[in-house]
Amino acid sequence: MENTAPPTRFDPKVLACLEGLDFKARYVMEGFLSGLHESPFHGYSVEFSDYRNYQPGDDLRHLDWKLYGRTDRLCIKRYMQETNVRFYLVCDTSASMAYKGSRGWESKFGCARILSAALSWFLLKQNDAVGLIAMDAASGLPRLVRPSQRSTQTGLLLREMEQIAPGGNPSLAALLGHALRLVHRRSVILLFSDLLEPSAEIEQYLKQLRFHGHECIVFQTLDPDESEFPFADSHVFEDLETGSRHQVLPGSARDKYLQRFNAFMEDYRQLFQRLEIPHCTVFNHQDPWPALALFLSERRKLQ
C-alpha cells in the first residue's frame, strides 16, 4: 500500500477491503493529506526540511539570503514542524458505540478507532508524544498507554486499539474521570465518543480537564440513524447498554425523538462553546476528513 498512489477521495469500500487498523489509518490519513495544498508536516522549527520559491507575502525572515547570494534566486527555507505536545487519545468504549446502521461503513466505535489510529500515526510522524486511554469493557478498568515519541509507539497503540471493544454500561463519565486522574502534565485530549450520556456529568469532568490546562478536542462519532431516525415500521428497540426494550411506532415517535436528540446535542454544543472545546461530528457513513481538517486547524492554533 505504501507504493500505491494516495486516494483522491474517501471510499468506504476500499476501507472495508483493508485488513488491519494500520492500513486503514494510513489510508484515511494519507488520502486526507494528499488533498491538502499545504503539507501539514512543515512548520517553523530548527530542523531544515527543503526550499520553496518565494511568494509575495511570505515572511522575509525565512528567506535564505545565502542562497540568494549564490544562485540569485529567492527561496523560502522550510523546516520540520516540531511541537513536542503530548496527545492523549481517549476512546469511549460504551456499548452504544457498537451501533452500526444500515448506511454506515463501520460502527461508531470502528470509525472512532480508525480516526484515532490515523491521528496517532500522523502525530507520531510529527514527533509528538501520543498515548491512549480507554475503558476495558470486560473488566471495567481503564487501559492506559503512556504517551511516547518512539517509533514503536505506533505499533503499540494500534495493538492496544485492536484489543479494545465496545460493551457494557455507559462509561464516558468514568473514562473522563480516569483521564483526569491519569493525565498530569498539560496535554491535548482527543476525545472520541458518541456523547450519548447526560451532559451534566460529563460537563464536570470536562471543566476540570480544562481547569488543569488540558486542551480538549471532541470527535463525536454518530450513526445517521441516530440523527435522522429513519425507521418506518413498528419495532422493538433494545438499548445496547441497558438492555431495556421499548416497543415503538416510529411514525408517531420520530418527531419526539428528533426533538429530544437535537436538544440533547444542543446542550453539548453549548457546553463545548462555553468551555472552548473544539467539537466535530463524524458520521460513520461519511468520510472522516472534515474531522481531520478540524484537528489540523486546531493544532495550528496550538502552535
Binding site: 428497540f237 433494545e238 438499548d239 445496547l240 421499548h246
Partner: peptide, 10 residues
C-alpha cells in the same frame, strides 16, 4: 427487534 444506541430518546 432493533438494538439501538439512542433508546433514551424514545
Amino acid at each position: 427487534l432493533i438494538r439501538f444506541s439512542a433508546v433514551r430518546f424514545l
